[in-house]
């Protein structure tokens, strides 16, 4: 599991320190950078981080542009009094209020980190190979070309190529002989069937 990383942008030293000490209570987190004024934000693009916690009062025309640019990959969290109205130009994932108790801040952050993890895990779980893909795989293993498979199954060659790519991604096997062995091991084809189409 990789660390959840934070960038904090806030003028007040006390508030920054306080927030950092709360974040560090959560295992596997790290505050990689802190800024105390809007002028330095240009270098923000050089950092990769999961979250940015920013005081919306520090947003001006320039900083807004910078944040917009990087916000595609980073989740934004506001840090302000409850009464502050957030700009609609940015997409905020969460709000932390200065009035919040430690527990409610921890709760908010934990939820965010939790969401991030389930998202990551999901993409890493190997997907099962589908029925259609098994059909395609069978034909590949039997020695048919993309064109032949397309004609046989009444689909376009392009679709066959897409299926092949997905099969390779799911199985981790790229070459035809490799796929053939997989097909035999999994009884998708019989060992005596191989190379029939070529003869």
């Amino acid at each position: 599991m990789c660390k959840a990383t934070f960038i904090i942008i806030e003028k007040s030293y006390l508030i920054r320190k306080g927030l950092i000490s709360i974040i560090e209570k959560i295992p596997n987190t790290q505050v990689i950078q802190q800024f105390d004024n809007e002028d330095d934000l240009k270098i923000l693009v050089n950092f990769e981080s999961d979250f940015i916690i920013i005081n919306p009062n520090l947003l001006n025309a320039n900083t807004l542009e910078i944040i917009k640019k990087i916000a595609k990959n980073i989740q934004l969290i506001s840090l302000s009094e409850k009464s502050i109205v957030l700009t609609k130009e940015l997409e905020w994932t969460a709000q932390i209020y200065l009035e919040d108790t430690q527990n409610s801040i921890l709760k908010k952050l934990n939820t965010l980190i939790g969401n991030r993890e389930t998202k990551n895990v999901k993409s890493e779980v190997p997907e099962e190979i589908s029925k259609r893909e098994i059909d395609i795989l069978k034909n590949i293993a039997l020695g048919y070309s993309n064109k032949e498979i397309a004609d046989k199954l009444f689909i376009s060659t392009h679709t066959v190529v897409t299926h092949r790519k997905n099969i390779t991604r799911k199985l981790g096997i790229k070459t035809v002989p490799g796929l053939t062995i997989y097909a035999i091991l999994n009884k998708i084809i019989d060992i005596n069937d191989t190379g029939k189409s070529k003869s």
Binding site: L171, G172, I173, K174, T175, P177, G178, I181, Y182, L185
Partner: peptide, 15 residues
Amino acid sequence: EKLLDLRNIIIKYLP
């Protein structure tokens, strides 16, 4: 490429 395939077959799929 083929070596990688062979490796994957042995690690993941060979009984």
